[in-house]
């Protein structure tokens, strides 16, 4: 579903932040992405959610060569990707409900069904009573749950999450992890960037480790 082949990434004339990165993500796979700060995690995620094009190498997503795909082809690819940004990137002037509904509205979904789905999902993540709340009035953990709900509302084929459990209490972290695992069971490939070693130990999914721009895959078996 996703294939990176000898991908290199540099910003302008600077040094390469990713070097010869090669891996494949199959349908229904689950990977953690780990590595120290500055190792290139964010750049790799940006390549995965199509915010950047690689400086070299080949990236194929959903059967399309992303390095050469036209701008017009990108929206349809992006609609199959859900992203939980580390800084959430919620729209401050929209309610939690409207923020979560965005991907469906952009895709032109039926408004009544959109609302039903959004209410159901927000209730599931414990925000059923905060539907109309603006992000400014939400706590860090609540914002994170809204961001996660927005990322998964359209049932993406690929879910990318940058520290999605960083701001919530352990109980909610578990609950969110189960949400990711459930989605994964339904066929969504998940890449979850985290520093949380407990998570890596508890959920024995393979770990993509980045060190100074180079990637290695750790099976993370018990």
């Amino acid at each position: 579903m996703v294939r990176f082949q000898n991908v290199g990434m540099r910003y302008g004339p600077g040094p390469e932040v990713l070097r010869d990165v090669s891996f494949e993500l199959g349908t229904g796979s689950f990977h953690f992405l780990a590595g120290p700060s500055g190792a290139g995690k964010t750049s790799l995620l940006k390549l995965l959610y199509l915010a950047l094009r690689p400086s070299r190498g080949l990236i194929s997503m959903f059967g399309q060569d992303v390095s050469t795909a036209s701008r017009a082809a990108l929206p349809m690819l992006r609609r199959r990707i859900g992203v939980v940004f580390q800084d959430f990137r919620l729209l401050d002037h929209l309610s939690a409900l409207d923020n979560v509904a965005l991907p469906l509205r952009i895709a032109g979904a039926d408004e009544k069904r959109t609302r039903e789905h959004v209410v159901e999902l927000l209730t599931w993540v414990g925000l059923g009573d905060r539907l109309e709340a603006r992000p400014a009035t939400l706590s860090g953990g609540e914002k994170q749950r809204v961001a996660i709900a927005r990322a998964v509302i359209a049932r993406p084929s690929l879910l990318l999450a940058d520290e999605p459990t960083g701001n919530v209490d352990p109980e909610m972290a578990q609950r969110l992890m189960y949400l990711f695992v459930e989605l994964n069971k339904l066929g969504t490939a998940v890449v979850l960037a985290t520093h949380d070693t407990h998570l890596l130990e508890q959920f024995r999914f393979p770990v993509m480790r980045l060190r100074a721009g180079t990637l290695s895959i750790d099976r993370n078996a018990a």
Binding site: P75, R78, L102, P103
Partner: peptide, 16 residues
């Protein structure tokens, strides 16, 4: 710019 970039990343076309 930030909001537009976000809408793009969520899958918005330029026409939207």
């Amino acid at each position: 710019r930030d909001t537009i970039e976000l809408l793009h990343l969520i899958g918005a076309e330029d026409g939207y």
